[in-house]
Deep mutational scan, measured.
Amino acid sequence: MEVRTIKVFTTVDNINLHTQVVDMSMTYGQQFGPTYLDGADVTKIKPHNSHEGKTFYVLPNDDTLRVEAFEYYHTTDPSFLGRYMSALNHTKKWKYPQVNGLTSIKWADNNCYLATALLTLQQIELKFNPPALQDAYYRARAGEAANFCALILAYCNKTVGELGDVRETMSYLFQHANLDSCKRVLNVVCKTCGQQQTTLKGVEAVMYMGTLSYEQFKKGVQIPCTCGKQATKYLVQQESPFVMMSAPPAQYELKHGTFTCASEYTGNYQCGHYKHITSKETLYCIDGALLTKSSEYKGPITDVFYKENSYTTTIK
């Protein structure tokens, strides 16, 4: 009895394709271990004539594949690729409408935090270190965002349907971005203890939790000093293409032309909904596939993004 075979390709990165001759009487799992086709788990399936010449994702289970996976995804987590594939199996079914010149995501599976993050990423200057993220990001900007969303979920250790947080998501993504040249110098002034300067680099240099107003941050924000008295913390120097200011959701007025974009969060910790506000020729609110415009805006804002380049204080 002759062994019926077909020729397929296996890959971990969709760049390096490895030619395989597979036995049609055995499952993919018996031949390769966990195997995925377009995100779908085909591990328990036997090869079919229609699979001839198709590319299958496999887990990096030998040295060659491990090197290829690390170079593309910059992670050695053995569960990463499987999590990416199972997320992709959902995100490829989502709709990605162009809204006001940006790629958004039609609401499904509690994905409003991903839509808000995706919209924000198209408006701030950011370059990702893992080629996987950078490639998928370019495709997302062009309207094909399924891979990018699935990668975000995998890097953030999230599953489809789980509630997510924009600030946490951005923080994970910033860790995989090139923020080497970003720098922030802060000064804390206390009447009792004097003053202390701190220099922050990388992710810490672009994120701040405690106030939404970048102007206020430049002037000074009140913080408790270690001595128990009130101290003032203010920005001395900022070198970065953008800054992200966050605070627990509270009524906040966004003035046209003073910011790049913002995240609105309605609801409580267990259950809520994100919308995205962007400042173009007027203010726009993007909620999944829905767009509304207004000249002014007041609502429960939790993150505001500002364009920056270089700032030095005039406070002496």
Rank of each mutant, 00 (worst) to 15 (best):
T199Y: 07
I6R: 07
T232R: 09
H273F: 00
Q98W: 07
K54A: 14
Q31Y: 14
E2L: 10
G210H: 01
S310E: 11
Y28G: 03
T76Q: 13
K7H: 15
M244P: 01
K201G: 08
Q31T: 13
L37C: 11
S279M: 07
A150N: 03
M209G: 10
T11V: 05
L254I: 03
C225G: 01
T10D: 01
V185T: 09
V67K: 10
L235K: 00
A132P: 04
P131D: 01
K44Y: 11
G161L: 01
K44F: 14
I124N: 04
K92Y: 06
F242T: 01
P300M: 13
Q270P: 05
Y36F: 11
Y72W: 10
V206Y: 01
P47D: 02
A205M: 00
Y137N: 03
V3Q: 13
L163S: 11
D303P: 00
T19I: 13
F32T: 12
Q222H: 09
L283Y: 02
C149D: 04
G299W: 00
M26C: 14
L88E: 06
I277M: 02
V189I: 10
E253Q: 09
D38F: 10
N157C: 06
T43S: 13
P78M: 10
G202D: 03
A154W: 03
Y269M: 15
V166L: 08
A177M: 06
Q31N: 13
M244D: 00
A69T: 08
S213H: 05
A115Q: 10
G299Q: 02
V42L: 12
V188L: 09
S294P: 11
R83S: 08
Y306D: 00
K183F: 11
E239G: 02
K201I: 12
N309Y: 10
T55F: 06
G210E: 01
N147K: 13
V3M: 14
T169V: 12
C193I: 03
L121H: 01
L133A: 02
V236I: 11
Y311V: 08
C271V: 08
A69C: 14
K307G: 07
V58Y: 05
H90R: 11
G29Q: 08
L59R: 08
L163R: 15
C225Q: 01
Y306W: 01
L186E: 15
L133K: 06
L126M: 08
Y113M: 04
L153P: 03
L126V: 14
Y269N: 15
S50M: 14
S310W: 09
Y172Q: 10
N16V: 07
